[in-house]
Design a protein around this nucleic acid. Sequence first.
DNA 1: CTGTTAGCGCATTCAA
DNA 2: TTGAATGCGCTAACAG
Lengths: 329, 329
Amino acid sequence: MRIKDIAKLAGVSPATVSRVMNNNGYVKEDKRKAVLEVIEAVDYQPNEIAKSLKSQKSRMIGVIVPKISTETASRVVAGVTHVAKTAGYQVLIANTNLDIEEEIKYLKFLSNKSVDGIIMMGTEVTDRHLEVMNKLTIPIVILGQKVSGYTSIIHNDYDASYQMTEYLINQGHKAIGFIGVDEKDYAVGVLRKKGYLDCLSDYNLNGSDGLIAIGDFDIDTGFKMMKKILAKSQPTAVFAVTDHLAIGAIHALLDQGYRVPEDISVVGIGDIKLAEYLNPPLTTMHYTFKTSGQMAAEAVFDLIENNAHKGEQLMTSFQLKERRSVKHL
Amino acid sequence: MRIKDIAKLAGVSPATVSRVMNNNGYVKEDKRKAVLEVIEAVDYQPNEIAKSLKSQKSRMIGVIVPKISTETASRVVAGVTHVAKTAGYQVLIANTNLDIEEEIKYLKFLSNKSVDGIIMMGTEVTDRHLEVMNKLTIPIVILGQKVSGYTSIIHNDYDASYQMTEYLINQGHKAIGFIGVDEKDYAVGVLRKKGYLDCLSDYNLNGSDGLIAIGDFDIDTGFKMMKKILAKSQPTAVFAVTDHLAIGAIHALLDQGYRVPEDISVVGIGDIKLAEYLNPPLTTMHYTFKTSGQMAAEAVFDLIENNAHKGEQLMTSFQLKERRSVKHL
DNA sequence: CTGTTAGCGCATTCAA
DNA sequence: TTGAATGCGCTAACAG
């Protein structure tokens, strides 16, 4: 059913149908009514693709995520779809499974006007990314990493990490272990580590090598890194940079016969949904991933529709969730 | 950069450029080379929207999910995006937040050729849904519910539930509580309950009213329903129809001073990622949500590209994960 | 106020 | 083997 058919049925021209559908231009009341009736009767739905070709806008945005099945990513996407809906946009998901080539491929592919804007949830942003991003003609916002020159939504990783470390110190801990990730992920790998190190140093504490272990993002890494730390040192608390890592660490501890938090305390960052249902309930920093997604979406729409200033850096808040995985010494 | 520009740069006609891009028709080798060089040089990306308008195919599929931030949904979407990628399709996400009107709206909206096929992750499939689905001209596959006449990917909820109940009975349990959900969700609300009831009956056991509680899908419901059951009866085991419900139940039990599984055993269905890291590690039925998503995607593509027979019912497997939340009596 | 025309970028006739 | 012309469905410009 095309606009032409509706026009014929209503006894008007296609242009008139278009005018009533889009509520612009003058249309006499009786014709408008006639058109509306036909539209109603046949449940006419305009062809969005044709509209896109004409208007050079697709009313779609692309979201590039490293791994959709992750709680973080799905919360972000929930936030994005939420504001996209009220703005009348559709969202296209590109799941890259952390493959940089895939990310770049999608960056290019999505750009040929097949979407009006892009939100990229970044882990690592390389020069290759930048090169492609610089050629993009559509707005892009980066979520999770700070990229100068591009609008970014970032989590306050440094402060969150610093404050978490400080919290542990305030609870009387001095030997604080650290489980981190590779520095290729600047936000998580570098910033969270720096927050920890700086805080330690500010309190004249020592982050010796034996207390620090670096690995991947998964629970199993948390498990292994915890054992590695235990082999070299005797922390009273361990700060894992993600909740999953913390869960792995707790299990390693339990496995070695330690009690948490009685013998060793453990904290994470992120506040996954189940954090409070863990045993012990995990003390962690609550991150507002859904809100980040919303902010990112609002930022792209602002860029798309209002030609907003590109390059703004928005920072989301975090909040300490004190639960029961830390012992006050 | 349009096809016309490339043509000009390469000194050929747009038609020739189109021929080399799509590898069809005859093109003399030197011209082909010239075109390829220009394409390479300017990194030409064809306009997908124009292609779609021309071909009447968008190479996109829509996925309607009740709530993307849910582990189940995000695993399904991971499966869908995975096979979509290899098939060269993009996926459009429509997040309905369990709003039936939204589902219907998207069913209509996505259909106007803006996608080539739809995967709907269903909770409740009403007559209104059916009415709209019947008018659809593009293929649709339902995931999670059985809808006759439509290709559906279903989980074997009845058998999973029956076997879980039987497992509990084999462990010596006779008073088995049940935490379920509303029957509007046929698969989870009706089938899983029926599996439980039928099994009980086959073993001449009694699913008295005091042992059964029905509520929503969230953890808190599990908590409340568990307390409700405890107020009326004294089960030795409780079967919750989802892992989240089971987690809530465990917490209610702990809260009342019971030990799990020493005093009361608890099982769930789904096998969320953290199930094995819970305390106690949760015995549950492993469901293959990512595989379901893959199957659904394969099914739509089959419908789209090979005009496959519509109405097939595919059932996914499940597997008991015996962990430590059940005591052998 | 309304209809006719043209063109968005592409692939596909049809001629040459 | 190639190019010119056409049309996918829509909306904007222009004419009336």
